[in-house]
Nucleic acid binder design. Sequence first.
DNA 1: GAGTGGTCTAGACCACGAA
DNA 2: TCGTGGTCTAGACCACTCA
Lengths: 237, 237
Amino acid sequence: MEKKFQAIYDLLAKEIQTEKIKAGQLLPSENELTERFATSRETVRKALQLLSQNGYIQKLQGKGSVVLEQDKLPLPVSGLTSFKELSRSMSQKVETCVTSLSCKKARGFIQQVLQCEEGTPIWELHRLRKLDGESVIYDKDFLLKELAPGITEEIAADSIYDYLEQELGLSISYAKKEVVVEEAQAEDKAIMDLGSYQQLVVVRSAVYLEDTTLFQYTESKHRPDKFRFVDFARRTK
Amino acid sequence: MEKKFQAIYDLLAKEIQTEKIKAGQLLPSENELTERFATSRETVRKALQLLSQNGYIQKLQGKGSVVLEQDKLPLPVSGLTSFKELSRSMSQKVETCVTSLSCKKARGFIQQVLQCEEGTPIWELHRLRKLDGESVIYDKDFLLKELAPGITEEIAADSIYDYLEQELGLSISYAKKEVVVEEAQAEDKAIMDLGSYQQLVVVRSAVYLEDTTLFQYTESKHRPDKFRFVDFARRTK
DNA sequence: GAGTGGTCTAGACCACGAA
DNA sequence: TCGTGGTCTAGACCACTCA
């Protein structure tokens, strides 16, 4: 059974996305929504808080909740989104090529970033992402084998997150990310279509499960002209 | 009078920051906190939700709230943070130099991004940020003059946000951002210390007030080696 | 003054984890 | 079984906007 506030959120989000309620208009008041959904005001407010967080509305005390303008498919690199989910919203032709999938024992750098015992089995996965036939993104993933024993090249080419969440029932919960620009390494130049680009945008992320286990470490290198990051942020005072 | 849930948040955040409660430990249970702060459980939960959003804790059903590891001063380019607030957390010597402050009538590109009438008075502000004597960040701001009539070079060199919020009582509420990499223009090369760098990380942002007025548009160009972006993101399902 | 959102309360029942 | 967090309720009072 879906949670009530989630259902209200989904419905309102959909009405905004489909422009059944247009930007600039006010949502029905909290009291009206309370009646319409036969619930309590706090539950309505939970839904509205989600809408506000995700940039759908702005609440104005004494007035109501204004619907904000929706951006036309910004790549939500922000938040936690996998490549497959991303590519769905891209018009271009996208291809994923698994260049390497091997199992290693943790030591040195990898052991350190995954914060595990020396010798822990680790999947090391390299994937090349092609847009319109050009290799422009190079991902290296390191994951605890213990938690995802059955990874295959097919799964890796599709979506690891789908596999984890739907097949294994693991819940990805949060991530820490860092974005920097670095010189392309010899390996990058050999494997990617860099043209004259000498630098790459590198996104490093640590992915955690619900129980706070650090589960995956990823280094994603992007050719600068194919990198775009968009963000919606609220001021927290 | 400070809101109760905010006070509880502040106190707990401080205890985590100062490692009075260490990473990996559990927070007191919601019932305990309810008693300690002589409040209701929902109020405690509001505070905990904030802590969770900001990456301080992870809630585990049936167990409690685990304190997460704190990162040592990540530049929070994420969220909504002004340069002055940023520089406070940087060890390096930071200098801001106002290279231009003028008032224009909106038209063309500027009119479009600020979504205002043609001819609306606009402040155009150029600032150069120096780290250790090198000019590595170049900001161009466009703001509605109507809302911030009294801007001076002194204010611009200090913090515009402080002026807006403390002097004018305006409330900055949210922003949309985009990060891309672009070729350095002739102007950028002339005014910044770019060395052999040919490309710049460009952060474009639109800043909105509480009443959803689009108030400011900023283009911030960073020398790639001095750009770093960190982010904490929760998975939203 | 009427209607809006913002905060807070005191309770209820449920799902989950650990012992 | 007991303590934890997750959801939900029905009410209260306040601050704000607008007519």
